[in-house]
Design a protein around this nucleic acid. Sequence first.
RNA 1: UCCGCGAUAGCUCAACGGUAGAGCAGCCGGCUGUUAACCGGCGGGUUGUAGGUUCAAAUCCUACUCGCGGAGCCA
Length: 464
Amino acid sequence: MDKLSVAQARKVESVGKKVLLRGWVRTRRDSKGGFSFIELNDGSCFGNVQVVADGSLPNYQNDVLRLSVGSSVAIEGEVLASPAKGQATEVKATSLRVYGDADPATYPMQKKGHSMEFLREQAHLRPRTNTFGAVTRVRSQISRSIHEFFSEQGFFYIHAPIITASDCEGAGQMFRVTALDMAKPPRNGAGEIDYSRDFFGRGTYLTVSGQLEAETYATALGKVYTFGPTFRAENSNTSRHLAEFWMIEPEMAFYELPDNMDLAEAFLKRVFRDALEKCPEDMAFFNERIEKTAISTLQGIVDSQFVRLPYTEAVDILTKSGQTFEFPVKWGIDLQSEHERFLTEKHFKCPVILYDYPRGIKAFYMRLNEDGRTVRAMDVLVPRVGEIIGGSQREERLDVLTERMQEQHLSPEAYWWYLDLRRFGTVPHSGFGLGLERTVQFVTGIGNIRDVIPFPRVPGSADF
RNA sequence: UCCGCGAUAGCUCAACGGUAGAGCAGCCGGCUGUUAACCGGCGGGUUGUAGGUUCAAAUCCUACUCGCGGAGCCA
């Protein structure tokens, strides 16, 4: 008696084995001949295994005929080649034991399709659906591919802190972390809350980026990456934003911007290729039910070269495109979603890496170009999702970096340790940030970012 | 946060000033291996919340809550 997963039991190699399967009933069909078909799923793969439960089972009347969607069972039996179409194998049950019923009158999950909005309200049960099982397996595979890719490229995995004292990283609103009693917090002379008497002796926040910390390790170990949760308290209500999401941030010493682009392109291709090769059943489902171009888009990207285009030329293309945009394009402004979408979806029809942005619209740490007007920033744009990667070559010159900080009203004293990296043994270096959820969205074709993370945190909602 | 749209049975929706309906699911029955099984029957509702207009409100008006699409911000 082998304990098999449903994935194993569905393979022809398992025919003839006596097996034990455990899982959840997806549906039951009763035959005219006094026996039943049970579709069993245990999450190990997209498909179910068909179990044939004969009327001669001692508990056929009492248990089998009462099985409903969501019931949990243990089934002993033999794997047979299926005589009917639709599946290679089936399991002829010799015994069936019910772990737990799922009362069909009250169990929210039904056999038919539910809306994504309804499933979001049932976030604890939605992993039992085809869609969320598939999303979960693909998300897991993507995470694994990321670690494998960086490991093979000689990167070290760095755990950046989640609690940070930098309140001025400039990457959006931060969540405050405090152990003070907010009902009666200590006050200073000015009547403000005195965070110097808080747990850490100063105000602290949840991280909005591990980049600055990653730079400290890149300038010692060469190539590093972070992969962890990130928090933004922005009141963003869109299908592309979460208050808590997972970000991947590689940071590489001795990499200049073209090296950074090479890495970003190879990285995305590897992740997409793995999804296609290692999750074919799940991807076929997304392609059929969620996004008709999911597979062809990914395959196209794996096989093609990303377009690399300076911001200035992108502005040229947009102004000469003949398209009317809600926001007119002009050199010096940040590109809008509609502009980015036009470039990647209509003009080039492939991923586009835009680089050398105006200094005024990008972060202080991005390296200033010789022209004095642009910085070595890069954004990777993909169809449907837009910006999936944002990165840059970092400013390694102490004087220029200090100047740029003052330009953006940041205090160099607060960043003393970051500036030390430029004071002592400074090197050219680069890095980028990739949103895991946006990557999962892009791969699966799922429209709303709240449906590619198990328990989404967004303004007004932190359920489950 | 801004603009627009929406909320009706467990789920997906219809009814658009005059007694709230259908499909699916559920329950009961039928059906010689089924594939979102099929066929027949039955039950199922304070129409998101709170006010207002009207002889009469799911329907018109106001506020609020939540959801969706888009924008901003970004990953």
